[in-house]
Simulated scan of single mutants.
Amino acid sequence: MDRENKIRIAIYDMDKTVTRRATYNGFLMHMAWNKSPWRLLMLPVLPLGLMLYALKIWSRSQLKQFSQSLLIGRKVPRIQFARHLERHADLVLGKNVYQEAKWRIDAEKSDGYRHVIATASYRLYVEAIAAKLGFDDVIATELATDDSGHVLARIDGHNCYDEAKLDRVKAWMAEVGLERNQCHIRAYSDHVSDAPLLSFADEAFATNPHPPLERLARDKGWQILDWRDGDPAT
Rank of each mutant, 00 (worst) to 15 (best):
residue 55 L to P: 10
residue 209 P to C: 08
residue 107 A to D: 14
residue 150 H to K: 06
residue 204 A to P: 04
residue 8 R to S: 04
residue 222 W to G: 03
residue 161 Y to L: 12
residue 56 K to G: 01
residue 124 L to D: 04
residue 58 W to V: 06
residue 181 N to M: 10
residue 223 Q to K: 14
residue 159 N to I: 04
residue 170 K to M: 12
residue 57 I to W: 12
residue 183 C to I: 03
residue 88 H to L: 13
residue 224 I to D: 09
residue 31 M to H: 07
residue 140 A to D: 05
residue 149 G to Q: 02
residue 118 A to P: 03
residue 92 V to Y: 07
residue 224 I to Q: 04
residue 130 A to R: 00
residue 146 D to M: 04
residue 193 S to C: 03
residue 109 K to C: 03
residue 206 A to E: 06
residue 172 W to L: 07
residue 209 P to E: 08
residue 164 A to Q: 14
residue 211 P to C: 03
residue 141 T to Y: 05
residue 127 E to T: 15
residue 203 E to W: 01
residue 165 K to W: 06
residue 42 M to W: 15
residue 217 A to G: 02
residue 64 K to I: 09
residue 46 L to H: 04
residue 140 A to R: 01
residue 92 V to N: 07
residue 33 W to C: 09
residue 79 I to P: 00
residue 27 F to Y: 14
residue 176 V to Q: 12
residue 154 R to Y: 00
residue 183 C to Y: 00
residue 88 H to G: 00
residue 81 F to L: 11
residue 129 I to Y: 05
residue 54 A to L: 14
residue 110 S to F: 00
residue 144 A to R: 11
residue 17 T to A: 08
residue 19 T to F: 01
residue 46 L to R: 06
residue 87 R to W: 01
residue 2 D to H: 13
residue 144 A to T: 01
residue 69 S to N: 11
residue 149 G to H: 03
residue 35 K to W: 14
residue 7 I to V: 12
residue 62 Q to I: 07
residue 71 L to P: 08
residue 92 V to T: 01
residue 94 G to P: 09
residue 113 Y to E: 05
residue 43 L to P: 00
residue 40 L to K: 09
residue 28 L to R: 03
